[in-house]
């Protein structure tokens, strides 16, 4: 059962990484224009990220 000492922190960490990533995407306005973003990846013009 010693393996739990590694596995539990790892599973919590991975979950935490997912949560932090989600919070980052919400904070940086990445859900403001889902349709537009889906189309913009097809555009040749350089486009970094949604403007604040």
């Amino acid at each position: 059962m010693e393996v739990l000492a590694y596995l539990i922190p790892i599973s919590l960490l991975l979950g935490g990484v997912g949560l932090v990533a989600f919070i980052y995407t919400v904070r940086s306005n990445q859900y403001d224009d889902p349709d537009g973003d889906a189309q913009r990846i097809l555009s040749d013009e350089w486009d970094d990220k949604p403007k604040p």
Binding site: S11, L12, G15, G16, G18, L19, F22, I23, V26, Y31
Partner: peptide, 16 residues
């Protein structure tokens, strides 16, 4: 955005 954030936290916590 506030609601979505709370929903996400509750979702991740409940899964764990």
């Amino acid at each position: 955005r506030d609601l979505l954030m709370r929903l996400a936290v509750a979702g991740f916590a409940s899964m764990n």
